[in-house]
């Protein structure tokens, strides 16, 4: 898992004068011999850097384009060829913040995402632990049942949820969304936490148990702290999906005041003309908090995305 550690260990080091055959594709820094080889390695390094730059540009460009469009006047937006340098305008942000309840919607999204994450962890972390650390009948079925919730197509469940919410007078309640979001939050947390708990040596827990700690004491005081990276990562992913969710939020929150940010973004598309600048400003407002968050926690996120992959 730890890339840096592995690569820092010079593969040729400690082997004295025995130089392994030259790998021409993947250069190994310690093995550069002749100046021709050195030049070739420099060239490969340059290509490598160029490749990385291409990846960065491709990944960033669409986001950059949206953000830049949100600061352009309509004329600059529609200009062909595109304008690359211009004096930014804040007019679209003014429109979005004035005409829609975007700030309120962002606050709604934030609270829903936060509560969803909290509940998913409360439910998913113990479940992941139970599946990872114990042998019992139906264990594999239980695991599959949890994970298969991730496979359900949300469109399918919108009408049933809508009708039951109507009967229970829950329509428009953020708790309704928080509860429904568990259908993807819990499976995600369970999937990741099973792998996380399995990667922790069993002896650590056994030592604690010998010392007289109860099962739950050991879980809370020993296992959860050890599995913290997985917990953080599950939380981040659940929060992302909850923040981004559209279908349920659209159908189950009728009140304009309690709508979530993605739903509000859609309202710009209804007119005869798409107000591109406003739409891009709204998009930027919705995406920027998540991007900042994602970049801040990227180390955890990278780890989280890969937990399911590594045993």
């Amino acid at each position: 898992m730890d890339v840096v550690f592995r690569r820092n260990k010079d593969p040729a080091g400690g082997k004295g004068g025995t130089t392994p055959p030259m790998d021409t594709r993947i250069p190994r820094p310690a093995r550069a011999g002749s100046s021709r080889d050195r030049r070739r390695i420099l060239l490969l390094d340059a290509l490598h850097a160029a490749g990385l730059v291409v990846v960065i540009v491709l990944a960033l460009f669409p986001i950059y384009w949206m953000v830049s469009a949100s600061f352009k006047t309509d004329n600059q937006l529609f200009a062909v060829p595109p304008v690359w340098l211009w004096k930014p305008t804040l007019a679209h942000y003014g429109t979005v913040l004035h005409d829609t309840n975007m700030m309120g919607a962002l606050a709604n999204s934030l609270s829903i995402a936060g509560l969803t994450t909290l509940l998913s962890l409360l439910l998913g972390v113990p479940a992941g632990y139970g599946i990872a650390r114990y042998q019992f009948r139906f264990r594999r079925d239980v695991w599959f049942w949890f994970v298969s919730n991730w496979m359900i197509i949300p469109v399918v469940l919108v009408i049933p949820y809508f009708l039951i919410a109507t009967k229970l007078h829950l329509l428009g309640s953020r708790w309704l969304l928080v509860a429904i979001y568990q259908t993807f939050g819990v499976p995600l947390a369970v999937w990741l936490m099973v792998d996380q708990f399995r990667s922790i040596p069993a002896e650590l827990e056994e030592v604690a148990r010998i010392d007289g700690t109860s099962v739950f004491g050991a879980f809370i005081r020993i296992m959860v702290p050890l599995a913290l990276p997985g917990v953080v990562v599950s939380g981040i992913l659940v929060a992302l999906f909850a923040w981004n969710e559209l279908l349920y939020a659209q159908a189950l929150i009728p009140s304009l005041a309690s709508r979530t940010a993605p739903v509000v973004a859609l309202t710009f598309l209804g007119g005869y003309e798409v107000p591109w600048g406003d739409v891009m400003a709204a998009g930027t407002l919705i995406v920027l908090p998540v991007l900042a968050f994602a970049a801040l926690v990227s180390r955890y996120l990278v780890r989280g995305l890969t937990l399911g992959a590594i045993k």
Binding site: F162, L163, A165, T166, L171, G172, A251, P254, S255, L256, L266, T267, L269, G270, G271
Partner: peptide, 22 residues
């Protein structure tokens, strides 16, 4: 309450079916 045309019938029908008095 401003909606895109294409979702107006949906919003209003859901409003009536759920009797949410929106």
């Amino acid at each position: 309450a401003i909606y895109p045309y294409e979702s107006t019938l949906k919003e209003e029908t859901l409003n009536f079916v759920s009797q949410s008095q929106q």
